[in-house]
């Protein structure tokens, strides 16, 4: 695929309710943090233009929109993801225990071509809070056991490591997409509907 083509990366964030998925997104994109928890409302996907390895990319970060709360994320959510961010709360061990099932769920639903090489990034959020329930070492061990997933300890509240984490996420997402494009262009004729006036041709030229 031509390298000058606009690159769109889809990133999905998974993890138990309340670990700070939406806060991390918001901190990264809008540099804002709200201390008050509410089940995710209005959070859809956020978009950021950035430069990764000298290439301009658009990163779309998809929130779960709260559908994870009762294990009701549909397969459509996972479609075409280039990177999966797993989040747990370092003060809540049960959110760490769920990571395996979130990872499995992603691999089953998204069914990436090479599951063992698909880029995940793990974020241990809320490091500003005490007491610590999951040690750095334990999280790192888990990452090692999963084919060396990159691990960041973050605080959405204090903007700690958030920028760095998403840089890494973007880079991994990009490399995933490059690999796919080099192999073969799977869906060349895909159409996005936007404004009715500027419909995109699908390779076929307009007829009438």
């Amino acid at each position: 695929m031509a390298s000058n083509k606009k690159i769109l990366l889809k990133v999905v964030i998974l993890g138990d309710s309340g670990v700070g998925k939406t806060s991390l997104m918001n901190q990264y994109i809008t540099k804002k943090f709200s201390n008050q928890y509410k089940a995710t409302i209005g959070a859809d996907f956020l978009t950021k233009e950035l430069i990764v390895d000298d290439r301009a990319v658009t990163m779309q970060i998809w929130d779960t929109a709260g559908q994870e709360r009762f294990q009701s994320l549909g397969v459509a959510f996972y479609r075409g993801a280039d990177c999966c961010v797993l989040v747990f709360d370092v003060t809540a061990p049960n959110t760490f225990k769920s990571l395996d099932s979130w990872r499995d769920e992603f691999l089953i639903q998204a069914s990436p071509r090479e599951p063992e090489n698909f880029p995940f990034v793990l974020l241990g959020n809320k490091v500003d809070l005490e007491p610590r329930g999951i040690s750095t070492k334990r999280a790192q061990q888990w990452c090692q056991s999963k084919n060396n997933i990159p691990y960041f300890e973050t605080s959405a509240k204090e903007a700690l490591n958030v920028e760095q984490a998403f840089q890494c996420i973007a880079r991994n997402a990009l490399s995933q997409q490059n690999q796919n494009d080099d192999l073969y262009n799977e869906f060349p004729d895909q159409i996005k509907l936007s404004q009715p006036s500027k419909s995109s041709g699908s390779g076929d030229s307009c007829a009438c």
Partner: peptide
């Protein structure tokens, strides 16, 4: 699912397998 996503984004509570 696209409609459900919009519903969820606007606060709809989703529970499958109930």
């Amino acid at each position: 699912q696209a409609f459900c996503r919009l519903s969820a984004v606007f606060g709809g509570t989703y529970a499958l397998n109930q």
